[in-house]
């Protein structure tokens, strides 16, 4: 019990620290959101119209008052889930912007993360099961090789080959200009087509870590005494691999997976930027480059909370799965 209390206390403390840093860091950056908006509008080749700049500043509402009272207001807003109006999408609220982008990221990245995990774990287990065979060398060497390729390069290559040269898939975006988001078959097939290339890019690079982790864990567990005993008892090889090897070797991967899901947002910036995908990652990038503090804060907050919750859950699960952890912490 003490273990779980401790974990909860730690969780709350980290959460507070994260929320506070999230408030402070954007305010330490130099720059002016109104100027950033104008720059987005007209580039740097035209003179700034001071009247326009003043009107935009007034529209966004400059932050008055000292940092402490701002911080107090911010904490209150966070507790109530009020994130205010986005600067770069004025007058739309931060919540509305996140609600628009969230489903895209959840579906594209969520599905590919789960698939990557499944594929990676299976391939890793297979490689360990047939270790030192040709299958093992292909999987291990292949995934190591793919792992060295930069993600953006794979993305651009896919676009170049499948979108530009072969013209099989669209070159970017979440859906075509001709269709609007709606609950129709036409839209879904269109959205599906647009998701193929980014999903492929994620599926090429995603499983690499899981493969290597799973293979190494399993090779180790298969060398343990209980696995040897099972072999001596004459159990079928597949049963040894699945029930004795994989089941135990998968544990660290499960923790990793929980954390990966929590940090979903952070990992999507690149893929969504390359494929122009209308999800949270691209929204985050835009918020940062436009100095859209309210949007930035909310997105960072979601990321940190996601990671923290995932960590907390992983910790708690570990406590259940492995009694040694509980005991070690209690003493």
């Amino acid at each position: 019990m003490l273990y779980f209390l401790r974990r909860t206390g730690f969780f709350v403390a980290t959460l507070w620290a994260a929320v506070t840093l999230n408030f402070l860091i954007p305010r330490l950056q130099p720059g002016d959101p109104a100027q950033a908006l104008l720059a987005r509008l007209q580039g740097n080749t035209q003179a700034v119209n001071p009247a326009q700049l003043a009107a935009i500043r007034k529209m966004l509402g400059t932050h008055d008052g000292n940092l402490l009272s701002q911080y107090w207001d911010y904490l209150g807003a966070v507790v109530h889930g009020q994130f205010g109006v986005s600067y770069s999408y004025y007058p739309y609220s931060v919540t509305a912007m996140i609600a628009t982008a969230l489903p895209w990221t959840l579906i594209l990245v969520g599905v590919t993360q789960i698939a990557s995990f499944a594929i990676g774990t299976l391939l890793g287990a297979w490689a360990a099961y047939r270790r030192n065979s040709r299958v093992d060398s292909v999987i291990t060497l292949g995934s190591t090789f793919v792992g060295t390729l930069p993600f953006f390069w794979i993305g651009l290559l896919l676009i170049f080959v499948f979108a530009i040269t072969l013209n099989w898939f669209p070159d970017g975006g979440g859906y075509g200009g001709g269709s609007s988001p709606s609950w129709t078959w036409l839209f879904f097939s269109d959205a599906f087509q647009h998701s193929v290339l980014p999903a492929l890019a994620l599926l090429i690079t995603g499983p690499v870590g899981w493969i290597i982790g799973m293979r190494n864990n399993m090779v180790q567990t298969l060398g343990e005494d209980y696995a040897r005993l099972a072999r001596a008892k004459g159990l079928p090889r597949r049963r040894i691999a699945l029930t004795y090897g994989a089941r135990i070797a998968i544990l660290p991967n499960v923790t990793g997976f929980a954390i990966a899901l929590g940090g979903l947002l952070g990992g999507t910036v690149l893929v969504e930027t390359i494929f122009n995908y209308p999800g949270l990652g691209r929204l985050l990038l835009e918020a940062v480059s436009n100095k859209d503090y309210p949007l930035m804060q909310a997105l960072f907050l979601f990321t940190t909370i996601g990671v923290l919750i995932a960590n907390f859950l992983a910790d708690v699960t570990y406590g259940f799965l492995d009694p040694r952890v509980r005991r070690a912490e209690a003493t």
Binding site: A34, L37, L38, R40, L41, Q52, A55, I56, M59, S88, Y89, Y90, P91, Y92, A96, M97, T100, A101, N276, P278, R282, L283, E286, N290
Partner: peptide, 18 residues
């Protein structure tokens, strides 16, 4: 047509930036 990467309907002629 403006409005950033996730454009939202906005035809208020005075909201120059968005």
């Amino acid at each position: 047509f403006g409005g950033g990467t996730t454009p939202k309907a906005n035809y208020n002629p005075y909201l120059d930036a968005t």
